[in-house]
């Protein structure tokens, strides 16, 4: 047997394309947020409300990854922002968006005038955390119905994200929910991460989140 040295990062090709995306976004002055969560935590619902609220002030565009439907794209298009849907089926049914897939979607998107590009990743708390797409910030959405231990079970996701949205707080009265525990568990992974407690249904808690996001977008130009 002959051993042949390779020494390469498995994801080097993705990292290269992500760096190209990042350069393109910088040239366009476009701020990019990558939104990740388990299936059904409320990414689309949070983004619908976010885009409606800030759309007047910050022109936005959306890329949405979904394994096979166009439901999310249809919902998000109603906010008035241009939307491109990626069916990862065409890319082998991947459970995450890779940088080249985002690059292809960007080429199909009318970005004229846009300041913010929102990417709704495929619902999955594992793989998307490993794939850089050239974004400025990563956002994890966690709903109060998912169990307080999620951050401890998926530490990579909570470690790579810059902000956490704790969604569906309108349901708390109906649940046996331990708020202190879930916050402590997020803090155990990342002590300084901003956490916004929100409800996409009632809009509770949205104001501070929108302020935070607007500040971030404006700081890149």
């Amino acid at each position: 047997m002959t051993e042949i040295k390779v020494v390469r990062k498995v994801l080097d090709a993705n990292d290269t394309v992500a760096a190209q995306n990042r350069k393109l976004f910088a040239e366009k002055g476009l701020f990019v947020i990558n939104v990740m969560s388990s299936p059904g935590s409320g990414k689309t619902a949070v983004l619908e409300r976010t885009l409606v609220e800030i759309g007047g002030e910050i022109p936005s565009a959306v890329i949405v990854g979904d394994i096979c439907t166009t439901n999310d794209a249809d919902r998000l298009a109603r906010t008035g922002a241009p939307v491109v849907q990626i069916n990862t089926d065409e890319f082998g049914g991947d459970c995450h968006l890779a940088a080249h897939v985002v690059a292809e979607a960007v080429s199909r998107l009318d970005l004229s005038g846009a300041r913010l590009l929102v990417v709704e990743n495929v619902g999955n708390l594992v793989c998307p955390a490993e794939f850089d797409i050239g974004e400025d910030i990563r956002c994890v959405v966690l709903s109060v119905t998912e169990g307080e231990d999620k951050p401890l079970k998926y530490p990579l996701m909570f470690r790579v994200c810059d902000v956490a949205l704790l969604n569906k707080i309108d349901l708390i009265p109906h649940l046996d929910f331990d708020r202190e525990a879930i916050i402590a568990n997020i803090r155990a992974i990342d002590q300084g991460m901003p956490i916004f407690e929100i409800s996409a249904r009632t809009a509770e808690g949205f104001a501070p989140w929108l302020e935070w996001l607007k500040e971030k977008v404006k700081s890149k130009s």
Binding site: M1, T2, E3, V6, V7, R8, K9, V10
Partner: peptide, 11 residues
């Protein structure tokens, strides 16, 4: 880390 270090090829 997520690296390929080497491959071993059969003689």
């Amino acid at each position: 880390e997520l690296d390929i270090l080497s491959i071993e090829v059969a003689d």
